[in-house]
Design a protein around this nucleic acid. Structure first.
Lengths: 210, 210
DNA sequence: CACCGATCCTAACAACGTCAAGATAATCTT
DNA sequence: AAGATTATCTTGACGTTGTTAGGATCGGTG
């Protein structure tokens, strides 16, 4: 045991790896960050982990299942990013736009990972199960609920959460488009741009107490 | 000439195809509709068009350029769909939500094509050039502009357009998720669900004249 | 008619996802 | 402790993909 996640094929690892499934997921994330999603082949992951092309099949049914594991870690990371953003702001409105900015920021800083997360979701036509009763999605719902003072019907709360989530996702996918560069400059940078867009999404006004 | 877009390899077509680039794009769209995006290989397209695997390279630099052509047609189709929706409604608010519903409807009815459209855009980090001065994006901007009575600053108009576009795109990508099935049923179907979400996106309220 | 460029085909390459069979090591049984 | 079992990893192969090189065929121009 005590295999110490090695960064590549090196130091003559023993025949049995120790924790290959973990090493594979980490190798995949490393490739995503450094070479982009196009370079993420199963064989490349195995290579990066210092293992034969067929080895991953003892830990994952196929390539999709490996990506599922990567996506799972991605959702967890997004969760903690949103959690941090939610704690930072006290004001209700700022807390909401702060969440949005943090969401898009995460997608912009981890574009390849973000893509994998949604590609996996699309293949199953569902966000990960875990998001239902906890996780990032619920953070958004709770934040909206708090801000409304708890007087909102469950259906309206769900609709508002969906609306917010969709808007953030759409913005996350488009924020990198060159078309908006001039506008970003005019507004004083990317974050100002994001805040401006979120302010135009006045979707929570109807829930404001004040 | 007079080649009549043939639906597959058949009737012993002459050595020179006549209009292969067009036939390839149509073959690609056919595959997208019937077998989904995973089956869309260059070789499959060539097969469907009744031509050798290397033939497409005389008309497109690589697979990406073929997909660009497919995406281009997709944007045109989306444009006409939005145009029809815009004409149908007279009331300003209904015209806006009608646009949104039509947008998501297009994405839901042509999911594979819609995916290709955005995948191509992402590869270039930009929406197609044509969208800037005309096309679907401008229809949204114009509709917002009309509704505001023309009193909105160019920057605010652009921001509102981006906000609306992002929200619609996000909803288009998520509307198929199973998580929302119960909610759709509770609201009386998919379109009612879409309208409800768009109503929660009160992003145009600040532009209302009344 | 001879030529030429455009178009298409065949053949091949490397890389990919995946599987079957064999080698190796850790674990369990007695 | 020895043998048997099971999990893990490797080698080698198959079919498919994107792409390229070189040869065949056609339409149009001189």
């Amino acid at each position: 045991m005590s295999q110490m996640t090695q960064t590549a094929a090196s130091e003559a690892r023993p025949y049995h790896h120790g924790d290959l499934s973990r090493a594979l997921v980490e190798a995949a994330r490393r490739i995503l960050e450094t070479e982009g999603p196009a370079a993420l082949s199963l064989r490349a992951v195995a290579r990066e982990a210092g293992v034969s092309p067929a080895a991953p099949y003892h830990h994952f049914k196929d390539k999709g299942e490996l990506l599922d594991a990567v996506a799972h870690e991605g959702w967890a990371a997004l969760d903690t990013a949103l959690d941090a953003a939610r704690r930072k702001a006290v004001d209700g409105k700022e807390r909401m736009t702060g969440l949005g900015v943090a969401y898009v920021g995460f997608a912009r800083e981890n574009p390849a990972l973000y893509r994998v997360m949604y590609d996996c979701s699309r293949d199953k036509d569902a966000l990960p199960e875990q998001m239902k009763e906890e996780g990032a999605y619920c953070q958004v719902r709770n934040t909206i609920g708090e801000r409304s003072g708890g007087t909102v019907s469950p259906i309206d709360l769900e609709l508002a959460t969906i609306a917010a989530w969709c808007a953030a996702h759409g913005l996350a996918e488009m924020a990198s488009f060159k078309q908006f560069d001039a506008l970003k400059d005019a507004l004083g940078g990317e974050e100002a741009f994001l805040r401006a867009v979120f302010e135009h999404l006045g979707m929570f006004a109807k829930f404001d107490q004040a």
